[in-house]
Design a protein around this nucleic acid. Structure first.
Lengths: 220, 220
DNA sequence: TCACGGGAGATTGTTGACAATACTGTGGGC
DNA sequence: GCCCACAGTATTGTCAACAATCTCCCGTGA
């Protein structure tokens, strides 16, 4: 299970620096990650680079091949769909559980997010909407308090950043997903686990449909 | 993501040996795993022991604390329930997908397992039934061909062996789970994904109920 | 021209030693 | 008797050097 604290140790520093570099797109999928180079770049010993690479391999962000070193893992659209399918059912579980545990205070926080989302969409602020999207999902996870599901979702998300970026940039996407988000929020506020799960699953299913579109268009 | 091949390298040897030792119960939850000791026991260098420990930590089987070494991870009944909940939804996904992809040949293999299960139950062969249980779930995963789900389920299962052992030893358990298994098989054979998912989820939900029983009884 | 082998360079795998840290028990002060 | 500081030990963290392996290119022979 992922979730690594300790941002102080050199290995952890290297790990986070490398993680961000990969997510930022500085190292492209399939690109080799040479230990000596990384060691120099991040100013840590090769030993620590190795540790970092192993950690990131556990997160599915890089792939290490015996005697051949590490490379940025390439996740095909097919894989992205698989990953999203798993995310769909796990986030469904989380949504259901959130519906059974939500407090009144959390319910109004959900409402607030819904309001901000509507505003962002009507103002055409896509970036802001995307941030709110993350905030909403994170809030739901917090409400659910399901650590096992949390860490799995975190791992899955980590592998998808590149694809998710493409999705969020799709024109018209917010208009489609806003009502889905509203439905999820409403179900949780009504403390209806079944409906919350269904709503969450349909939401992510629609994301998957979009991924399938990419696949057909050969965009990745 | 787990799934590590290469049983030839020393680190992999150590990893598998240690994994089995833990699963066999030679090292109890909470027990410290001293690198030097393991190094001597498995005849590999401390370096390789370290690598093995890191790998097993990624699998959630051990926990490594900075400057304090590794110990066998203790999974409480609460956690076991959380893990099983995630497993429930992911295996549900797998069952649904199996229903859409099953070939005629695979369908008859499912039938065969069902037959053997019925025989094992009526003959009171619990150990055999437990093996068939594993075979059934594995077969369903093969049919589904969902690698992401597979590797997650493998990780989750690995953390549960201790609890699963207790479950399978429960008297009367096979009589409860046999009809559930039959229902799953039937749904897949009918190529009914929705029903397959529901049946699988209800099956695992019933396992979770049993775990809750342990919790109340303070058995773990 | 092509297939093959072999060697140089690049890169990863492994080791043993040492440094840093945590644990344990002992003795002194109160 | 109890608490705390302190030293000694056990254990993990890190490193730099060396070994093993792979990759790529070049020369040789057919």
């Amino acid at each position: 299970m992922p979730v690594q604290p300790h941002s102080d140790t050199p290995a952890a520093q290297a790990r986070e620096a490398l993680r961000e570099a990969i997510l930022r797109g500085e190292y492209l999928p399939g690109e080799r990650l040479v230990e000596a180079q990384l060691s120099q770049r991040f100013g840590v010993s090769r030993f620590n680079v190795r540790t970092a690479l192993q950690d990131l391999a556990a997160d599915g962000l890089v792939e290490v091949q015996r005697n051949r070193g590490a490379l940025v893992r390439k996740v095909s659209v097919e894989e992205a769909i698989e990953i999203s399918e798993v995310r769909m059912v796990v986030e469904g579980l989380v949504a259901a559980r959130a519906a059974t545990r939500v407090t009144d205070e959390q319910a109004s926080e959900l409402d607030e997010v819904a309001l901000l989302m509507r505003r962002a969409v009507s103002a055409g602020e896509f970036r802001r909407y995307s941030d709110l999207n993350q905030r909403l999902h994170a809030l739901i996870r917090t409400i659910a308090g399901h650590r096992t599901a949390d860490s799995i979702i975190a791992t899955l998300r980590g592998q998808l950043v590149r694809h998710q970026f493409m999705l969020s940039m799709q024109p018209g996407r917010p208009q489609v997903s806003l009502p889905q988000h509203e439905r999820i929020i409403e179900a949780i506020r009504q403390r209806d686990p079944k409906e919350a799960e269904t709503a969450m699953r349909e939401h992510i299913a629609s994301v998957i449909e979009n991924l399938r579109g990419f696949d057909g268009a050969g965009l990745v």
